[in-house]
Amino acid sequence: MLERLLGFPWTDLFSPAPDVLHARKTVHDRDGLQASVVIGERWPTSRLFLSAAGDVADSWELIGRNVLDGTTSAVHFLPAARRGEEVRLRPPDTAALGRFLRPARRGLLVGVEEQDDDLRLYVIDSANTRRNLAAFTPRDEGFAVSGAHELDDLTYGILWSLVQLDDGLLADDQTLDDEQQVLETYLQLPRSAPSRMTLPMLTAVGAAWLGSAFCAQHIQRRLDGASEVPLFWTREQTGEEAAAWLFFRHKIAYLQSLGRRFGGAVNKLSRTFCIP
C-alpha cells in the first residue's frame, strides 16, 4: 500500500533518507515488468532495466562471459497474440512506438503474450519493425511476425551472440579495416602470426575476428599443392566460442573452400576438438 501511495519501493521508504529526494514516476506495475523478470530468470546473461521516465527507453543488457564483451540494446514491450504460425504485435500507443524507433540505435521489440501464469515472448529488431509499420494503419490489429520469432533458448542464444558480435565489430570497424592491410605482411612469412600484444586496443570480438581472418587465409595459402587430406583441430569449448563459425563470413567461405578442395577425397576431411 505504501509503495502504491508514495511511489517508492518499500526498501527506500524504510531506509535513511537521502539528502535530496526527487519525486518521479515509478516503474511499479508498469508494462513490461513481468516480462523483464521472466527474461532475467530464464537467461542469467540478461539484465533488463526499466526506465522511470516516459521519454527514456528501457534497456536490455546482454552480458558476455569469457569471449564476448557484452552490450546493451534499447527495448520496448508490446502486447502480442498468436494465431497459428502468425503473431500479432499490437502497439497500444503508435506515437510512443514511433519515438522508440526513431533514434539511430539498436533496438529490440518484445511481444508479450500472457498465458495463465506464464508468458510467451517474441522478439523483433527495430529495422524489421520499421518495415512492418510502413503498411500499418490504426485500424489494423497490430502488425504480424512469424511465430519463429518466439524467444526460446535457441532464439535467445542466437540473439545473445549475434548482437554482441555485431556491436563489437562495429566498435572496431575502422581499426579492423586498417589492420587487415597489415596482415598481408604476416601472411608472406612461412611461420608467423600477429601477436595479441602487437594489435591495437581492440574489443575481444574485434581481436577474435582479426585472428580468425588471419588463420583462415594462412591455412588456405599453405594448402596449395597438399598431397594428403589434412587433419584439423580446433579448441572451441563453449557455444560462446563456437558462435563465430555461424556468423563470421570468412569462416563460412573457408569451410566451403575446404569442402570443394577435399570433399571428394577417399579419406574424408575431419576436424578434432582439442579440449584440455
Rank of each mutant, 00 (worst) to 15 (best):
W10M: 00
L68I: 09
P91T: 06
H218Y: 09
P16H: 03
E114W: 14
L68T: 10
H22I: 02
F143Y: 06
G111K: 00
Y186G: 07
I124T: 07
L189G: 05
A213W: 09
D153M: 06
L159W: 12
G64I: 10
N66W: 09
R120V: 08
L89S: 12
L151G: 02
S161R: 10
R30W: 00
D58H: 12
E113A: 09
P200N: 08
I252Q: 13
E241D: 11
I252S: 13
F247M: 14
R90I: 14
R131Q: 13
Q188N: 06
A23C: 12
A253D: 13
D55W: 14
G147N: 11
V38D: 03
G32R: 06
R4Y: 01
P91A: 08
A134Y: 05
S227D: 13
A35V: 00
L165C: 11
A207N: 09
F214L: 13
N132Q: 15
G206D: 01
Q180K: 09
T198S: 07
A127C: 04
N132R: 15
R42M: 02
M197Y: 13
G111M: 02
Q237A: 15
V38K: 04
L89Q: 08
D58S: 08
A57S: 15
I39T: 08
G168P: 05
R271P: 06
D58I: 04
F247G: 11
P9Q: 00
S51F: 00
P103G: 05
Q256I: 05
G157H: 04
R271E: 07
N267D: 10
W43H: 13
F262C: 04
S270V: 14
P79I: 11
E41L: 06
S126E: 12
H22G: 01
L109R: 05
